[in-house]
Structures are given as C-alpha cells and as structure tokens.
C-alpha cells in the first residue's frame, strides 16, 4: 500500500527563525521533520540545506545530521548511559572529536538546559521527567547543531517543566542563534514562543505566517481541523461581541491584559 503523507510542500526556513509547527495527528508534521535531517527521503522533490541539494551525489548526510539536530518525542527513552555526563558525551564522541572538545561540548550543552555539575554523575534514570527530557535535549545540543527540530518536547511534563524547556529553547534561539522548529500541540505555547507558525493539514502546509496573523485570521479553519486558538484569543473575541470596544488579536495573556487595561483606562 502506498499513501501520500506529504503533498507538494514548498517551504523555506531562514537562519535564526523560531518556527512553531502544528497540525493534528496524521497531518504530516512528523513526516516533514524527518525529511529535514534526511532520515526520510522524499519520493519526489528536493531539499536544500544552505543552498546545497541534500540528495546531491557528493552530499554528506552524516554531516547534515550533525547540523540539523532532531529531538524525537519522549527522547528520554533513548537515554542509556550510567550517568548524565557520559550520556551527553555519546553524540560528540561519534564525531571523533578530542576528549577535551567532547567534554567542553557536554558541559556547554548541559549548562544550556540548566543542569549544573551536581547532576553530572547521577544516573539519568533517577531524574524527574523534565530533567530526563533536558538531558536528552543536551545530548543533541552537544552535536552543536545549527538547527534544532523538536517533536513535542513538552509532552507529558507538568507546567513548570514545560515552561523551563521552552525558556531554554528561547535562549538558544536568541543568544546562540540556533534555528528552532518546534512541533507542538499547544497553541498557547506556539503563541508565546514562535515567531512564525506553520499549520499542516492532510500533508499540505495550510497556513504559514506570524502566529498573531494566523490565529486571528484563520480561527474558524483552525477549529475545523481540530486545533483551535489560545483561550485568551477567544476571550477577546467574546468581549468584542459583548460590546466592549477591545481590539481583538491578542494571542498571549500579556497582550490581552494590555488591551483590556487600555480600554478600561487602568494605567
């Protein structure tokens, strides 16, 4: 049996972007991201990384996988070493770097996910869900990717654990210039963190734009494909319908607060 999972997708990801990729289960988003580091090979079409055709004859897929780091769902299931530090060293070790370089990278990666030296010698299996997840992300960061693609990195974590991971991604993006592609089921998280939003449906890119634009102009289409908009966006629309002269279009709590404060002159 053959089934088309992705249909005629054209897309350009620019350096330093923070992209939120949404779509219901089966919409093609996981298939799409597995093309980004060459894990899946397109049936037809081309993919260019920094202008080079990744299906080209002399192109090194191995090198591509070093540059595009893919963090799968529940990545902590892939932790296996006896301690945190050794686990994070595993990736760079395979890059045949010097021992010093490997350790420097592991330290940097662990620092980037907020795990200090006290964790280095601990077994990954004793850590909390959120900590394990961060160790797994550090393992990919230690490869020094230019692009980090994460498939629902906050699934199953509590609110604080979610927040910590998202803040760390934001810092990686802003301070180190790493391009982030975040697959998420949380419209609230996409609204808060992504600068650009891609909506997948039935193997196609249905919408591509700034989250504010997508959430405010396409609310009904998003609901029809089972995604919806952040709760505060609905709040502002409800206020407008009730005759309160607010501007709709807020997608975060901060924006909604500011707009209501303005209308009610609370400053």
């Amino acid at each position: 049996m053959e089934r088309v999972a992705l249909k005629d997708v054209s897309l350009e990801v620019r350096n330093g972007e923070f992209i939120g990729l949404v779509g219901h289960t089966g919409s093609g988003k996981s298939t799409l991201i597995q093309h980004l580091d060459g894990l899946l090979r397109a049936t037809s079409g081309k993919i260019f990384y920094n202008g080079e055709d990744i299906y080209g004859e002399n192109y090194s897929m191995r090198e591509l996988r070093g540059k595009v780091g893919l963090v799968f769902q529940y990545p902590e299931h892939q932790l296996f070493e006896a301690d945190v530090f050794t686990d994070v060293c595993f990736g760079p070790k395979n890059l045949k770097l010097s021992k010093e370089e490997i350790e420097v990278r592991a330290k940097e990666a662990l620092a980037a996910v907020g795990m200090d030296e006290s964790y280095y010698k601990r077994s990954p299996f004793e850590l909390s869900g959120g900590q394990k997840r961060r160790v797994a992300i550090a393992g990919v960061l230690a490869m020094k990717p230019e692009v980090l693609v994460l498939d629902e990195p906050t699934a199953g974590l509590d609110p604080k654990g979610r927040e910590e991971i998202l803040q760390e991604l934001k810092e990686l993006n802003e301070q180190q210039g790493i391009t982030i592609v975040l697959v998420s089921h949380s419209m609230e998280d996409v609204a808060r963190y992504a600068k650009r939003m891609l909506v997948m449906n039935q193997g196609c890119v249905m919408f591509d734009g700034a989250p504010t634009e997508v959430f405010t102009n396409h609310r009904h289409e998003l609901e029809a494909i089972g995604l919806g908009v952040p709760q505060v966006t609905r709040v502002m629309e409800s206020l407008e319908r009730a005759g309160i002269p607010v501007k709709t279009g807020a997608i975060t709590i901060d924006e909604a607060e500011a707009e209501i404060v303005r209308v009610f002159r609370l400053d």
Binding site: P159, K160, E188, V235, E257, F264
Partner: peptide, 17 residues
C-alpha cells in the same frame, strides 16, 4: 510549579490592576 487556565490568570491580573 503548576498553572491556572489562561482566562483565570487574565482575570486575576485584571483584578490586581
């Protein structure tokens, strides 16, 4: 380390204002 629904937080902030 938990959270409240977005609408609850928004209302809470407006009340504080």
């Amino acid at each position: 380390g938990l959270d409240v629904p977005q609408v609850t937080e928004l209302a809470y902030r407006l009340r504080k204002r």
